[in-house]
């Protein structure tokens, strides 16, 4: 009976919190679509672009395990060409722009890969 005010307050708080993403979208305006900047002239990455977009984390994980645990550094790609398994030597040679390439999508999706807990981040002017 006399709790009605409190119940309705609680309900209003719940609805307001449930719509939190709507308020945030209204405050921050339209979100930008991430646009990873590719600076290399090479036509293709280690594997085709679609596969890289989807599976790059799995590939890097496999590379780390093969290099660190088995000491092998040669990777044979699906199309037969061989590459040296190295983040700084191979990946970062074509993509030295971590801030504009890696971080573009990772920040957008709140992904924080732990590559840079062991590897040294490339020096870039921000």
């Amino acid at each position: 009976m006399r709790d009605r005010g409190r119940i309705i307050t609680g309900l209003a708080v719940f609805v307001a919190v449930a719509l939190a993403p709507v308020w945030q979208a209204a405050l921050h305006g339209a979100a930008r679509r991430p646009d990873p900047k590719i600076v290399t002239t090479a036509k293709q990455c280690v594997e085709p672009t679609a596969a890289m977009r989807r599976d790059h984390m799995e590939l890097l994980n496999a590379w780390r395990d093969t290099v660190v645990r088995r000491g092998q550094r040669t990777y044979v790609a699906a199309d037969g060409k061989t590459v040296t398994m190295s983040l700084t030597g191979t990946c970062m040679k074509c993509h030295p722009n971590k801030k504009e390439f890696c971080d573009a999508c990772h920040n957008y999706l709140a992904v924080s890969p732990y590559c840079w807990e062991c590897h040294i981040e490339p020096k870039e002017k921000s």
Partner: peptide, 19 residues
């Protein structure tokens, strides 16, 4: 399956942004 999460997020952001 690992879909293209960038596009998934675009869909979700569009929903909450009412566009």
């Amino acid at each position: 399956v690992r879909p293209d999460v960038v596009r998934v997020k675009e869909l979700a952001i569009g929903l909450v942004g009412l566009h």
